[in-house]
Design a protein around this nucleic acid. Sequence first.
RNA 1: GUGGAUGUAGCUCAGUUGGUUAGAGCACUGGUUUGUGGUACCAGGGGCCGCGGGUUCAAGUCCCGUCUUCCACCCCA
Length: 442
Amino acid sequence: MFKTLPGFREFLPEECRRRNFYFSQWRRNSRNYHFQEFDGPVLEPLELYEEKSGAEIREQLFCFTDKGGREVALRPEMTPTLARLVGPRLGALRKPIKWFSIGEQYRYERYQKGRKRAFYQYNADIIGEAGPAAEVELMALLIDSLCSFGLGEKDFAVRLSDRQLWIMYLRGLGIEEAQATSVLGVVDKLGREPEDVLEQKLEPLVGNEAAGLLKKMIAFSRQQSLDGVREMFRDSGIVMDELESRLENWNELLQGLQAMGLSSFVQIDLGIVRGLAYYTGFVFEAFDREKSHRALAGGGRYDNLLGMLSRKEAPAAGFGMGDVVLEDLLKEKGLLPKWVEETDVYVVGITPEERSVVLSAVRALRQVGFSVEYSLTGASPKKQFKGADEAGGRTLVVIGPEEREAGQVKVKDSRTRSEKTVSNKEMIACVHHILRGDPELD
RNA sequence: GUGGAUGUAGCUCAGUUGGUUAGAGCACUGGUUUGUGGUACCAGGGGCCGCGGGUUCAAGUCCCGUCUUCCACCCCA
């Protein structure tokens, strides 16, 4: 028979419930930080992504030619769409622009632990703020979002780095800015590949100084304090004013996070540079403390992207958080409760004669907002009571011949099993009474 | 794209050196005599044993291919 396409997902009720839980937390946190939600098309012109990431990106996209001969792709990320939407309206939008989105993204690549071909991603971006205040706001939102799922500082940390600082450091060692991006690609691999392999990758970029350069890069990537960073620059040709000006940004960022009470979540880790070349300044990634998963979230500053995609320059920063790794971690930590979709009221009709009275009561209860269930087929009373159990009904409304003839119903508390016969008019008040948890029925 | 593992009922899995009509638990459906419930007992439905080919008198079991899922690499927005 037909199967789900590889790497795609289906959401049975329980899984759907979980997914909606992530969405509602993301939305709640965004509102908390006063970000506005936006959305865009799932299908975009292929060039939108090729423009940003180069033609090689095509290999990792679900792309095809549509019936009108247009080359299109399922969106692999939200940022280009955001840039396209904001660019033309830049003049009209109040700054800073704080927007977020939640949407399914698609990437044609090999799926494995923590990565599928279709996944949901939460994105939050700030456009129009050039200073580190934007990063403070974004990192705080990122941290609070993870915390809202029950994760704490023992579970995850946000690692903070700075591509600008790296480029400055490399320039001090005589590396041109044009080569710096490729060299940062090697930084991304530090600790993951043996040093001789990394040295070979550096050689075409910097010639026979590769070995010495690699050692310096490793030392730099291990700095965990601003003083340590300052020390690394001591012998370089960098003007100290330039360095100090950048370190002032660092101070502003770190102090901002400290003032928000979030320092314990943040570590300086210059080994993080992010794979993508379009980041221009601070970059950060959230990891579980054991580092047994992929990054939970990642982001940074991308001041040139809007200019590339919309011809309108604007400073911007943002982050993305996927649902796949998040869910893996929450499962591992036992932070996913078993949700039970409980109904408020279950209406039982004892004999088929009560059918229309039951339907009428069901509708009346639903009209005032209760979740109401009943047996569609009018099975035996025993089955109906069992059904009430399984539906988790807190309250039962039982109608038999006696009640029907008297124009009454029996309202029963399923926990205490105490019951009370009331008139049809009193039924709703009585159900309210039980659901509120009041101890006695009368 | 490369390498390793995996596939038996809706789910978790048994299934011996190849040998009759492929099993269990959970779940599901019905029942235990007709107006009161999570237990217990009884019964039942449900499997092209991933798919295709091969070896054999005989394949869930052995061989080849293929697909799927998982893990690692590549990549990672």
